[in-house]
């Protein structure tokens, strides 16, 4: 990327700006989803967030079989078989010509935008933020696009908008150092206590993640610990006590939030052409979630809530 003349012109790749988010931090928030994630959680429900580059989403049920995509694709990814439109991405060169002509089913996932463009949309909802709400950076891993993230957070603070960052924590600490002055609240994922299992299910162990967590805590950052509960993976006594241990040793923790797994992402896997995820995880019902919360509470006096 050529060096941008000002911070506001730094570009990043985002796959969504969602307004009226009421679950990613306090108040009414606008969440910016930055594309790309350095790790792969087996249960991830955001497959469109993985790849740092833009890609194609295809929603078969919206396809009206008009054949426009077939005509424009230079490498013949789109074909008709037995009166059905078939999309094979193997040779796709991501030129997005098919998306341009498709009236309904193909979507470009990922868009290169400048800091300013994002801030402009975020500022639209300023009247709704009042004292609590604001911008949340999410992903993927928002901190993986470090310069862009810093530009957004700094810009938001300049406009008097509060900031949240939802992070998995798997980035070098120098990135945290850069964003720290501009972040009001971290929503920090804590997925698994056992480092070996962490590696098994996400591809990396949790050493760096924990290190970063304690370091930002040391430097005074406010933190909400977010813990996904995936039955059969981390709904263990060991992990519950692990969550409590981490929570107890953080100085600036506000609360622990439990995020029950859901299956909303399954459909997206197919739309993104990744096939179904290997593991089919159960979804804890609300009683089980309450049970988890109780178990964690045995070991800690910090607030533990369902997100």
């Amino acid at each position: 990327m050529s060096s941008p003349s000002t911070e506001k012109e730094i570009r990043g790749n985002i796959f969504n700006i969602q307004r009226y988010c009421t679950h990613d931090g306090p108040g009414i928030r606008t969440t910016v989803f930055l594309k790309g994630c350095p790790i792969r959680c087996a249960w991830c429900h955001n497959p469109e967030s993985h790849d740092f580059k833009s890609e194609i989403g295809y929603n078969e049920s919206s396809c009206i079989k008009c054949g426009k995509c077939i005509a424009v694709c230079p490498v013949h990814c789109h074909t008709v078989m037995d009166g059905k439109h078939v999309f094979d991405r193997a040779n796709c060169i991501r030129c997005f010509k098919c998306v341009e002509v498709c009236p309904s089913a193909l979507e470009k996932i990922g868009k290169s935008v400048t800091v300013q463009e994002v801030l402009d949309e975020v500022a639209e909802d300023k009247i709704f933020y009042k004292d609590a709400g604001g911008i949340t950076l999410s992903g993927g891993e928002p901190l993986s696009q470090a310069e862009f993230a810093v530009g957004l957070l700094k810009g938001a603070k300049e406009m008097g908008i509060t900031t949240c960052v939802e992070t998995g924590g798997f980035v070098g600490y120098e990135v945290f150092e850069k964003v720290l002055p501009y972040v009001d609240l971290f929503l920090y994922d804590y997925k698994l206590t056992d480092s070996g299992l962490h590696k098994k299910y996400t591809g990396v162990d949790n050493t760096l993640i924990l290190e970063n967590l304690f370091r930002i805590d040391e430097s005074g950052a406010k933190i909400i610990l977010r813990c996904p509960i995936i039955p059969g993976v981390n709904d263990t006594e060991e992990h519950f006590s692990g969550i409590a241990r981490v929570a107890n040793s953080l100085k600036n923790l506000i609360k622990v939030e439990i995020e029950p797994a859901h299956t909303i992402g399954d459909m997206k896997y197919e739309q993104m052409g990744y096939g179904r995820p290997d593991l089919k995880y159960g979804v804890p019902d609300s009683e089980e979630v309450l049970l988890c919360i109780d178990k964690i509470k045995k070991y800690t006096s910090v607030t533990v809530k369902k997100s």
């Binding site: 919206s62 009206i64 008009c66 426009k68 009236p103 309904s104």
Partner: peptide
């Protein structure tokens, strides 16, 4: 002209 209609609705 369903394609045009879809274009209007979605794009």
């Amino acid at each position: 002209k369903e394609d045009l209609r879809q274009y209007i609705l979605n794009r």
